[in-house]
């Protein structure tokens, strides 16, 4: 099977104008400007198969959004190769643009003072969608997202969540085969995040669309993406299944215990490392191989009323991964 997104040795540099604070420096900068080269994407390579759901993870400034913009043709790579379903994005051919969509959670395409239905209609015309297909798509989107009451109100009067739903619908009018989502759930409340997630997943499953998503909310990624690509400082740190990543970085497990009567911390410390110990519950950190033994000892020796075994939270896994990357990456960067 040929990959729908193929990236080789992709590199993107920006020249950024910098100046120190102060009036004198401002005057100097009028005559002479200092530019600093920033490497946003530093030689990444990846392949994504049609229909995959892939999560792009990384701290702020890791190069996630830059990469998405390169994949959708908005930014031109400094060097390297990008092919989206056989198209070179930077050429922005019609055929390419009709296959993809980029949704930016912080930028909107809805016409601000008109109802979303006008934006849908506009996109129908712009993407040259046949009338029958358009109507079928709109029926489906309306039902899935619950848009009935929204599409006739001016976009500016919609709440953030309602606007995001319409934004997604507008992005899908032409049924893109590749969907790039940059922080689609930013600023949304928990239930709206879940709605957006479910919807995106369903779209992927029903239409076989490929999904590449960045998000600050680990939950989004954990729920949606069987595969994650972690990038930091423009380089890929990990590419593979989410579960494997967790096991690799943090092979330990957490045992959460509740007791029927108070237990001394020293009793717990005898079993394993204590992460947290409070009246309500205690958390132990245990190497993966030792889980069975520790659980058995705890059940035998302590007044356990409830016991669960968990993986460490994704956030912690990530921060540990990035922390490990720091010393290596720091030497690879141009001096400021």
């Amino acid at each position: 099977m040929t990959s729908i997104l193929r990236v080789r040795a992709l590199r993107k540099e920006f020249a950024v104008h910098e100046r120190p604070p102060g009036v004198a420096a401002a005057l100097r900068s009028m005559l002479h400007r200092e530019y600093k080269k920033i490497v946003a994407v530093d030689g990444i390579a990846l392949d994504i198969q049609p229909g995959e759901r892939v999560g792009f993870l990384g701290p702020n400034g890791a190069g996630k959004t830059t990469a998405l913009k390169i994949f959708s043709g908005l930014l031109h790579p400094t060097s390297g190769e990008v092919l989206v379903d056989g198209h070179e994005p930077r050429r922005r051919e019609d055929a390419f643009l009709k296959k993809i969509m980029l949704v930016l959670g912080q930028k909107q395409q809805l016409l601000w003072d008109l109802p979303p239905s006008e934006t849908f209609e506009l996109n129908r015309a712009v993407y040259d969608v046949p009338r029958a297909q358009y109507e079928a798509t709109m029926r489906e989107l309306t039902a899935l997202l619950g848009l009935e009451d929204l599409v006739k109100r001016p976009s500016r009067t919609l709440s953030l969540g309602e606007r995001m739903k319409c934004e997604l619908a507008a992005a899908l009018v032409h049924r893109p085969r590749v969907l790039f989502l940059d922080e689609p759930t930013i600023g949304l409340d928990v239930s709206m995040q879940a709605t957006v997630r479910d919807f995106v997943k369903r779209y992927n499953e029903q239409h076989g669309a490929t999904l590449l998503l960045t998000s600050h909310y680990m939950e989004d990624v954990a729920q949606l993406c069987p595969r994650v690509i972690v990038i930091d400082r423009g380089a890929i740190l990990y590419d593979g299944a989410l579960g494997d990543l967790v096991t690799r970085i943090r092979p330990d497990r957490r045992i959460v215990l509740r007791f029927s009567r108070p237990v001394a911390e020293s009793d717990l410390a005898a079993l394993a490392t204590v992460v947290r110990h409070s009246a309500g519950e205690s958390v132990l950190q245990v190497p993966k191989e030792a889980v069975n033994a520790v659980v058995g000892r705890a059940l035998a020796n302590l007044p356990v009323s409830d016991l669960t075994v968990q993986s460490p939270p994704l956030e912690e896994v990530m921060s540990e991964l990035f922390a490990r990357n720091r010393p290596r990456a720091a030497t690879g960067e141009a001096p400021p």
């Binding site: 009036v23 401002a26 900068s29």
Partner: peptide, 12 residues
């Protein structure tokens, strides 16, 4: 005032 002058000088 100072902030304004700095801002103004940003744009040569």
């Amino acid at each position: 005032l100072r902030a304004s002058v700095l801002l103004g000088m940003q744009y040569r």
